[in-house]
Structures are given as structure tokens and as C-alpha cells.
């Protein structure tokens, strides 16, 4: 039964991947890409990697899907041809040979490695000291907290990078409005999002809290929050903030700054990013809540795009 399920899942993953690549219509390709992301999430789930599954479905399918659909809508609104030009057969053949060769090489290499879990045991011995149960959170917020800290700055930097390409008259204004132009749809989504936004806030808070012991955490919580914000923006329930809004800036840097501050506090105890004994869980949860808020705001604004001149704000949506 499980084998049949896995085989069907694999076929569906390959099928949706092929469909999203081969579709001539860009919108069709996007739809299959979102389906592909969700199926990949289910595959992670069946492998027992619930954290990865959550991240894949939230980011790989959810946020990336919205981003692609928005990009498609904005390109169409600008009158750009969104369909890609046909690739030459030689180019296709070359890409197929290179990718096929790489897959063969990687398969041989992966199969030559004995599938032993070398890190699990070490992680398991260290976890009790943290007072949390989810080993993924242990790795992300303690053992490899330094990586995670730097990654939060990558995300912040990505938003600043989007700001950098704002047109001269667009700075420091708002991103183009995401509100849907059709009045009926706007009303429906607006009503829906007034329920969804508070629900997503509760859901995000729950995911962060439960992330200490069960799958979940700041990134998953932040993504759910971003989803709530984006739907609310699509429904016209909220307006996106100006790039120079100090409240916005504070929310964006809250998580990274809290992480830095608690890390620097560790120096008083001997080492940067070392948690005082007994306070590990409290500090980890505090960092995660701050991070979830910042990640939610940053992801939503990354999807919304660069600030544009005020006149263009109303023309952005589709």
C-alpha cells in the first residue's frame, strides 16, 4: 500500500514537473508548478521530514506561487508577451544531456554513500540541555544558530535589494497595490481576509509555540503570517506600508536585532550566541516569536515588490 502510494506520488511529481516545464502557457506552467510544490511537500511528509514538508508547501508552493502569479499579472498588465519563445532543438538537447548526465552522476554518488545517520545521535545527546523536543529547532536556534542568524540577514538584505530598484519617484512610497480590480471578487476576498488575517496570526503564533517540541517554528509561522497579510492586501483590507515607515522598519529588524542582541548577551557568559543555563527555551522562543513577525512582514513585502510612484499604486493589481 505504502509502496503503491509512493510510486503514484513519484509519478505525479515527475508529471507535474514535466507539465510545468513543457506548458506553452506561462499561467498553466505556474499552476502545475504550485501543484508540484505541494506534491513535493507530501513526499517530504511521507519521508517523515515534517518540518521540510511545511517549509516546502509554505514557501515552495505557497509564497513562490503567489509571486509567480503576481509577476504574470503585472507583466500582462504591462502588455509584455508572457509566453516564452520556443527554444531551439539543439538547446533543448544540450540541456537534456547536461541535466541527465548530472542526475546519473549524482545518483551513483548518492547510492555509493551508506545511509547512516551520523548526526542524529550527537543531536539527541545535546537536546535535553535545551529543554525543547524538536531537534530541527535545536539545530536552527542553538547548535547552528550562527547559520540561522546570518540567514535572517540574507532575507532582510533581499528586501533592501528590492528597494534598491525602486524607480526614482517611487521612493520611499508604497509597493503597487495588490487589491483585486474586479469589485465582486474584491468584496469576497476582502470579507474572507478579514477573517483569515486574525486566524493566520493565531495560526502563526501556534506554529511558533509548538515548534519547540513538534514540527513548526519561526519560518513556518512567519510564512503563514505572510500568507494572511498577502490575502488581506489582495482583498483591499489592508494597505501596504511606505518603505520609510519607521514602524515597518522596526518590525522588519525586530527578529534579526533580537537574535543579535541575545547572541551578544551571550558574550557576558563567555561566548557569542551561548544561552545561559536554564534560560535556553525562554530565549529560543523569544527569538522565534520576534523572527516570525519579521519574516512574515519581510516575505509579504518581497512578494508585493518594489515601491512605486503613488499614481501607479492603484494600477498594479489585476
Amino acid at each position: 500500500m505504502s509502496l503503491v502510494f509512493d510510486l503514484v506520488l513519484c509519478l505525479m511529481i515527475l508529471g507535474t514537473a514535466a507539465a510545468s516545464l513543457l506548458m506553452r502557457s506561462a499561467l498553466g506552467g505556474i499552476v502545475f508548478f504550485i501543484a508540484f510544490g505541494n506534491l513535493l511537500g507530501i513526499a517530504w511528509l511521507s519521508l517523515g521530514a515534517v518540518n521540510v514538508a511545511l517549509a516546502e508547501i509554505a514557501i515552495g508552493a505557497g509564497v513562490t506561487g503567489i509571486l509567480l502569479i503576481l509577476a504574470h499579472a503585472r507583466l500582462s498588465a504591462m502588455g509584455d508577451p508572457v509566453e516564452c519563445e520556443p527554444t531551439s532543438p539543439w538547446m533543448r538537447a544540450a540541456v537534456a544531456v547536461i541535466c541527465g548526465g548530472l542526475i546519473v552522476l549524482l545518483s551513483v554518488a548518492v547510492l555509493s554513500i551508506s545511509p547512516t545517520d551520523r548526526m542524529g545521535a550527537q543531536i539527541a545527546t545535546l537536546m535535553p540541555a535545551l529543554g525543547i523536543e524538536n531537534p530541527v529547532t535545536g539545530v536552527l536556534l542553538a547548535f547552528r544558530a550562527y547559520d540561522t542568524l546570518l540567514e535572517t540577514f540574507v532575507l532582510l538584505g533581499a528586501l533592501v535589494a528590492v528597494w534598491a530598484i525602486a524607480p526614482p519617484r517611487g521612493w520611499p512610497q508604497r509597493p503597487a497595490s495588490l487589491a483585486i480590480a474586479t469589485p465582486v471578487s474584491l468584496t469576497v476576498i476582502g470579507t474572507f481576509s478579514r477573517v483569515l488575517l486574525p486566524a493566520s496570526l493565531v495560526m502563526a503564533a501556534y506554529l511558533v509555540w509548538t515548534g519547540s517540541d513538534l514540527p513548526g517554528g519561526a519560518f513556518q509561522g512567519g510564512t503563514v503570517l505572510a500568507g494572511g497579510i498577502l490575502v488581506a492586501a489582495l482583498g483591499g483590507a489592508i494597505a501596504l506600508p511606505r518603505a520609510d515607515d519607521m514602524r515597518l522598519r522596526s518590525v522588519l529588524v525586530l527578529g534579526p536585532a533580537m537574535f543579535l542582541g541575545i547572541g551578544l548577551g551571550g558574550i557576558a557568559l563567555g561566548r557569542f550566541l551561548s544561552y545561559p543555563v536554564g534560560l535556553e527555551k525562554a530565549l529560543i522562543v523569544a527569538i522565534e516569536y520576534a523572527l516570525a513577525l519579521s519574516i512574515g512582514a519581510t516575505l509579504a513585502l518581497l512578494v508585493a515588490g518594489k515601491p512605486v510612484p503613488p499614481a501607479a499604486v492603484q494600477e498594479g493589481g489585476d
Binding site: 551520523r118 543531536i123 545535546l126 547552528r144 544558530a145 550562527y146 551571550g266 557569542f272 544561552y275
Partner: peptide, 9 residues
């Protein structure tokens, strides 16, 4: 970093 020993840290 943070006192987490190798090979994990």
C-alpha cells in the same frame, strides 16, 4: 560559535 562542539557546531 556558542560553545557547540564539532562536528555539529
Amino acid at each position: 560559535v556558542g560553545g557547540w562542539e564539532l562536528p555539529l557546531g
